[in-house]
Simulated assay, not measured.
Amino acid sequence: MTTPEQKPASLECFEKARTEHTERMKAYNGICADIVRCEREQQTAIQAGKEAESNWRTRFRNLRGNLTDELRAEHSQRIASRELADEFGELLKELALDKQEAMLKCCGSGKEYVESHRKAFTGFADVHWQSALRNVSPSLLWAIKLRLRREGLSPTFAGEDRDRINDVAYLVGEALTRAAVALPDSVLKEAPLLENIGLHRPALTGIDMELYTSPLRRQKLAESIRAQRAKLQEGSQK
């Protein structure tokens, strides 16, 4: 556990995947924040437009249609508020597609993140497993040798067709596994690389898990986004 460790390629891939996923989630959350802000600004513009419309019509009637400079300015303002609200509406349509597209990217980076964690953790565990096997205590091997002889003389399990090597392998595995389970989790922190990798699968907070687990859903959403973008592009060119 305390042997100096070199950073394996699988860990470098994991760190890269973690960074990319973090950046994509930041981009997604940024779009969500933009949508909230634009919706708020749109509602403000709509409300301002309604108030300007009501005030202008009242003043227009009171002045019997006499378009003073002030009334003309108010007219321009009410039109501007209406157009601004419409612009926010169009922008929100685009942002909604950006949000969906960003979530698709997050699903992709999330899968890379989880898979790279699996490979990094598996590689780390395998390296330490092989190291432990190469450095098994001679006293343990001696005790196992004795146990094999003991099983030949006085079997632990009944049955004439028992294989004493398999039986001892089971007994050794069970004993060592129980001893390992009894160790506190704090011993795992002695390995800096493992602390970097993490013991558990990365938490994909904020990910649409139904989309994440369904390739078909992701494919259909991607097709829908392309179709809607094309439609918006056609509308902007008219």
Rank of each mutant, 00 (worst) to 15 (best):
E223P: 02
Y28T: 09
W142I: 09
D126W: 11
R218Q: 09
E90H: 13
E94R: 09
A227R: 05
M25H: 08
R134A: 04
Q228E: 15
W142C: 15
L188M: 09
K189A: 05
C32K: 13
G198K: 08
F124C: 02
E20C: 05
A85L: 02
E70P: 01
E190S: 04
K16P: 02
K145C: 15
R178D: 07
N62E: 08
Y212Q: 00
E160Q: 03
Y170V: 12
K119V: 12
F157W: 13
R134Y: 01
R40A: 14
L146E: 15
R229T: 03
V136E: 08
R57N: 14
E70K: 10
P4G: 02
V114C: 06
P215D: 06
K145D: 14
L211P: 03
N62H: 15
A27K: 13
I46T: 13
K26M: 08
L194Y: 00
W142F: 13
R229D: 01
E223L: 15
R164I: 11
D208T: 04
D163M: 03
L153V: 01
A33C: 03
P192W: 05
K238N: 11
G123I: 01
V136R: 08
E223S: 06
D163H: 01
S54L: 12
W56C: 01
D98V: 05
E94F: 01
R78K: 10
R178W: 01
E23N: 05
H75R: 15
A179C: 14
S139M: 13
A17G: 07
K50S: 09
Y28Q: 06
T2H: 09
S224M: 12
N166W: 10
T68N: 03
E101H: 08
K189F: 08
K7D: 06
K16N: 09
D208Q: 10
S131D: 07
E190R: 02
T44G: 02
S10R: 00
V136W: 08
L176D: 12
I197E: 10
T19M: 10
I225S: 03
L133S: 10
A227N: 03
A203V: 15
N62C: 06
